[in-house]
Design a protein around this nucleic acid. Structure first.
Lengths: 373, 373
DNA sequence: CGACACGACTAGAACGTTCTAGAGTCGGAT
DNA sequence: ATCCGACTCTAGAACGTTCTAGTCGTGTCG
């Protein structure tokens, strides 16, 4: 049935009565063939259903226009990220090869497989491997890490300004009239520290040090549930949570204990996970600008492949707030302050992209003037 | 920095003072080298940090132990499926190349890219392209379609017995004491017809024809919401829904209209989507046996690559019911019938796998667990 | 009329592997 | 002594492409 040998350039050449090289020229759309023969060769190729062999092609031409992408199957928004990466790669004529990290296939394996595919650069989505390993890897080929801050001048980084994300969340709540705002953190998870600090900074900027309250949390739903139980003795009027998953756990416990969300407590999540959009959950949350991140990551990888000398290795993208149904003014001040937007899904557009240049002494300062109307 | 040429077999050979062929032998772990030189070559290779070039390897050796997988970034459980596929492929020494379908990258593109990679077979997750196209594709190389019934003797199919899935759902509800059970269908979505028919059959089997009621639905949350509104005039005591996403929409509308779920209405979804596990949603649902499906798909692809003549092209896997919090006995019969299991996440184990034609190829169904949400 | 440039095409060498066929070497059986 | 088989290793040809360095006409300009 399907046992026939592949049709190659040679077959097409023979059928069209020309040389292999000429067919190659036509297939690549390279200069050096007349319009007439070009047409004829294409016709024959179509008839024989010729399919180029990318492996032979890459083997010969050395430079593979190929980006390796490592993604995790459980990551909240790897879907959208992949979509963006495909878009960006296609736009500049690059291909993508994917390698997944699964519960039983670790990052090292995923990376090794890509290395064997000889891709020109690696894009890692939220890599968990130690910095040192990233560094040696980056010594061999360009490496772009996404959604992870890594203090290592060898690797490029494209990530969200998580500190600022919590500024947005707190600003929003304060604008609604909240003052007693707690934060449920992410435990030892990657960007937990930065988000926690963002919360602290924002609270102080609003002169709300007195209300600062950080509760231990984590990545999962149970972590949020646990944090909620801890908050119940002395509930604040609003909470910012490390991520959406944890936030749903929190939501659930609060409601089961008779507290109304958002009536009694407003909740802000983080990530804009797909489920947070469900009418049933309808969570106000902080979204990462995935499209921009993808575009920048690909651009950066390609620059690096082309041997560009780039000064700033880290690009930090501002997040944006997605206001949904879990945030309203606190009940005791209801009506005395700016009402919440009544259109669901309103987003605060991100300001300009900024890159951190020079010494890796943390990220550039925030511009506190930018609040909500 | 990273501009140095790749280290090849020739480099290793030169450094070790042996021939290229011998190094190849050692790297492939093929017979024909003494233990001493083997050790020495490996040592040198390690020192030079040699990485085999899979492209050259595949180019030469013709048969690529490579399976192409097309998956959609929005599919409810492609994560778990990929996990399973990786497991299964690794177990028999095959590699996987992934190609994603995104909102702006259609299936044809994804498939074309895999064809260029010269994979030995294709595994398509829920393919949407017309049957005819699948057939021509299958003429060129082995094709396994998952989660889609396709009447075409050329392509292999591994899918869930969706009809039976609805039998399970209805049986469960009936066992709880429900009789007035409606179904919200999936509109023109792929397996909608089969699930609808499963519902009908099950109802008749229980002598409940009088209660049969199918409401138009669809794939999305809004579809479920719309269906819920339609049900409100004369609410049944239980509903089976085409999928989980639609079910959440339905849940939401029901509750907003003062109906309690599961108090007033029990709801069963389909897919065991990750969000259905959230405490907040806690949806009773029908789960596909993803681990088994993945294992079987890979096995089938490999058999086909090895040129086996296989009688039955279609393998249909029984689903299992995951009982969670949205199903309890109807309020008027509460206590008069078997109480629901109070342990959450209880699963009804699947019976044996059945093939539609011919004898089933004796297979060990191991369930490699599930990814965490 | 010769030189020269230019366009259309081709031969053959890469690329980094694997595979086939064979060349040494050594010990033991005839 | 000779032959044989087993073992270790090597030379060189594939694989399907791209790329370099041409060749061959043909027209154009001096």
């Amino acid at each position: 049935m399907s046992g026939e040998r592949r049709v190659t350039l040679a077959d097409v050449a023979a059928a069209a009565g020309v040389s292999v090289a000429l067919v190659s020229i036509v297939m690549r759309d390279a200069p050096g063939a007349s319009a007439a023969t070009r047409e004829r060769v294409l016709e024959v190729a179509r008839r024989l259903d010729y399919q180029p062999d990318s492996r032979a092609r890459l083997l010969r031409s050395g430079q593979s226009r190929l980006l390796g992408v490592v993604f995790g199957v459980m990551h909240p928004f790897h879907d959208d990220l992949l979509t963006g990466l495909y878009d960006a790669a296609e736009k500049i004529g690059y291909e993508l090869t994917l390698s997944a990290v699964t519960p039983r296939r670790d990052e090292r394996t995923a990376i090794a497989s890509l290395l064997q595919d000889r891709c020109a650069a690696l894009v890692l989505l939220g890599p968990q491997i130690p910095t040192a390993e990233l560094a040696t890897l980056a010594g061999r080929l360009p490496v772009v890490a996404m959604m992870r801050a890594v203090r290592q001048r060898q690797v490029d980084v494209v990530r969200t300004d998580d500190g600022r994300g919590l500024h947005l969340a707190v600003d929003h709540l304060v604008a609604l009239g909240h003052r007693n705002i707690a934060h449920v953190d992410g435990g030892r998870w990657l960007s937990s520290a930065e988000r926690r600090q963002g919360y602290r900074d924002a609270m102080r900027r609003h002169g709300l040090q007195a209300y600062e309250r950080v509760v231990n949390g984590g990545f999962g739903e149970e972590d949020g549930a646990r944090a909620a139980r801890e908050l119940l003795d002395e509930p604040p009027t609003a909470v910012t949570v490390f991520n959406d998953l944890s936030a749903t756990g929190l939501l659930d416990v609060l409601r089961r204990h008779g507290l109304s969300v958002p009536g009694d407590i407003s909740v802000v999540g983080y990530d804009d996970s797909s489920f947070s959009r469900l009418a049933h959950i309808d969570l106000t949350t902080v979204a990462q600008d995935i499209g921009t991140m993808a575009t920048l990551a690909v651009a950066r990888a390609v620059e690096r492949i082309d041997g560009a000398q780039i000064a700033h290795r880290e690009v930090v993208i501002p997040p944006r707030l997605v206001v949904r149904g879990t945030t309203v003014p606190p009940s005791d001040t209801k009506g005395t302050t700016v009402p919440p937007p009544d259109t669901k899904g309103t987003t605060v557009p991100p300001p300009d992209i900024k890159g951190t240049t020079g010494p890796p002494s943390g990220h550039t300062g925030d511009d506190p003037g930018r609040g909500r109307p």
